[in-house]
């Protein structure tokens, strides 16, 4: 088990290295001059030279990459071109904000989806099951910004006036100080990831409920509650963990649009800003942060899947 974990971690590191390479290629090493692309046609040669210096654009590509990677490892992400501040300090709070948003979405969505999926499987072919099937399909078909807009219409501007339509924050105030502001963006994300998890949970649960060990547990006279919780769930969760991880990792991408929609001061919002400002170091840092999140979430899913499988758990 420990060896497998170590192996997965190594794979994660390799993935990150590859991602850093791709990010480097896509931003800094593009054909043409990155400095000119940033400053525009009217830039003076002095300013171009200064920017090249600042971005380490001198020297061969491999040496540029190694330089860049070296400073990355020292948590030196460069200086933002637009804000003239160190990138490290800028992305700290937005990362925290986004993490809060995604975490609250994940904490709500995962257990909810598992419960709905299980329930739907237990009530197979009933009205409840059919309704769940249709609703999840509709939700899965709608893009998350449409879901977000519909939620805004429903809960804040149209039918009810319960929640703020966009995020209004005062500088210095943390996002979690006003939870009401978090509700709509988090709910949008929950509705975006929920359908897939529900569906896969239902399918896996049906398979497990049909298995001989569940039949045997029932024939042993084990109470139905125990059958579900002790016998069925642990066997169903393993495969579902992978889907949950993919969905949560997707959240990092999905969060860009949702944050923009609700003007939520997170990674996505900042990324869109940075791209618009051609703020190269900031873009690089944010993309790497998102990649890191992907790798970590998938690693966690692997751990859960491995831990849910006693064959792996007991192997040496």
């Amino acid at each position: 088990m420990r060896r497998m974990l170590l192996k997965r971690c190594l794979f994660g590191l390799v993935t990150l290295l590859v991602v850093s390479f791709v990010v480097f290629l896509a931003t800094q090493a593009l054909p043409g001059d990155a400095a000119r692309a940033i400053l525009g046609r009217e830039a003076t040669p002095e300013r171009l030279a200064a920017l090249r210096e600042q971005l380490n654009l001198e020297g061969s590509l491999p040496s540029q990459y190694l330089n860049w990677l070296g400073s990355l490892l020292q948590f030196d992400l460069g200086t933002s071109l637009a804000a003239k501040q160190p990138v490290t300090g800028m992305i700290g709070p937005t990362l925290v904000n986004s993490s809060v948003l995604m975490l609250s979405a994940a904490v709500v969505a995962t257990p909810l989806a598992i419960v709905i999926g299980t329930w739907s499987a237990l009530k197979k072919d009933s009205a409840v099951d059919h309704a769940t099937g249709i609703v999840t399909l509709v939700l899965a078909a709608l893009p998350e910004f449409v879901v977000g807009i519909l939620l805004v219409l429903l809960l804040s501007t149209g039918l009810f006036h319960l929640l703020p339509a966009v995020y209004v924050g005062t500088p210095g105030q943390q996002v979690w100080n006003d939870p009401a502001q978090l509700v709509l963006p988090a709910l949008t994300l929950v509705l975006a990831v929920l359908p897939y998890i529900v569906r896969i949970m239902r399918a896996t649960m049906l398979e497990v409920l049909d298995s001989e060990y569940v039949q045997q547990a029932r024939l042993k006279g084990v109470p139905e509650r125990t059958v579900i919780i002790r016998h069925a769930l642990p066997n169903a969760v393993g495969p579902v963990a992978q889907v949950i991880a993919l969905q949560l990792a997707w959240l990092v991408g999905g969060v860009v649009i949702v944050e923009y929609l609700f003007r939520f001061p997170g990674v996505g919002f900042q990324l869109i800003d940075a791209v618009a400002n051609r703020d190269l170091p900031l873009v690089q840092a944010l993309v790497l942060a998102i990649a890191l999140f992907y790798v970590v979430v998938n690693l966690l899913a692997d751990v859960v899947t491995l831990a849910a499988n006693p064959k792996v758990r007991t192997a040496r």
């Binding site: 045997q216 642990p234 064959k311």
Partner: peptide, 11 residues
């Protein structure tokens, strides 16, 4: 059961 391999809960 017929096949204990599948009737014993693996988890």
């Amino acid at each position: 059961p017929q096949s204990p391999a599948s009737a014993l809960n693996p988890a």
